[in-house]
Amino acid sequence: MDRTERFYKIELLLRSRGCVSFDALQGELAVSPATLKRDLQYLRDRLAAPIVYDRFDNGYRFEAATDNAKTARHELPGMWFSEKEIHALLTMHQLMAGLDDDGVLSRHLQPMLDKLQGMLGADESEARELMRRVKVISTARRRVPSRHFELLGSALVQRKRVWLRYFKRSDRSVSEREVSPQRLVNYRNTWYLDAWCHASEGLRRFALDAVQEARLLETRARHVAVKELEADLDAGYGIYGGGAKVKWATLVFSAEAAQWVANEEWHAQQKARWLDDGRYELQVPYSDPTELAMDILRHGDSVVVAGDKALAAAIAERLKNAARLYA
Score class of each variant (00 low, 15 high):
1 M>D: 09
2 D>N: 15
9 K>P: 12
12 L>N: 07
22 F>H: 10
28 E>P: 08
30 A>I: 07
37 K>N: 12
46 R>A: 14
46 R>M: 10
57 D>K: 14
61 R>K: 13
63 E>T: 10
63 E>N: 10
67 D>M: 10
68 N>F: 13
69 A>Y: 15
79 M>C: 12
83 E>S: 14
87 H>T: 06
94 Q>R: 15
105 L>E: 03
106 S>T: 14
111 P>D: 09
115 K>Y: 02
116 L>W: 04
121 G>C: 08
122 A>K: 01
125 S>F: 09
126 E>I: 05
131 M>Y: 13
133 R>P: 09
152 L>P: 02
152 L>R: 05
158 Q>S: 11
160 K>F: 03
161 R>W: 03
164 L>I: 07
165 R>N: 04
166 Y>S: 00
167 F>N: 10
180 S>D: 03
188 R>S: 04
188 R>Y: 09
189 N>Q: 06
189 N>M: 02
197 C>T: 01
197 C>F: 09
199 A>T: 11
202 G>H: 05
205 R>M: 08
220 R>L: 07
221 A>C: 02
223 H>D: 01
237 Y>H: 01
240 Y>R: 07
244 A>K: 13
250 T>K: 12
253 F>R: 01
261 V>K: 05
264 E>Q: 13
270 Q>I: 07
279 R>E: 06
279 R>I: 06
280 Y>K: 01
280 Y>H: 08
281 E>D: 05
284 V>E: 03
289 P>N: 00
291 E>W: 02
294 M>K: 04
295 D>R: 01
296 I>K: 01
304 V>P: 05
308 D>S: 00
312 A>K: 07
319 L>R: 15
322 A>M: 15
324 R>A: 15
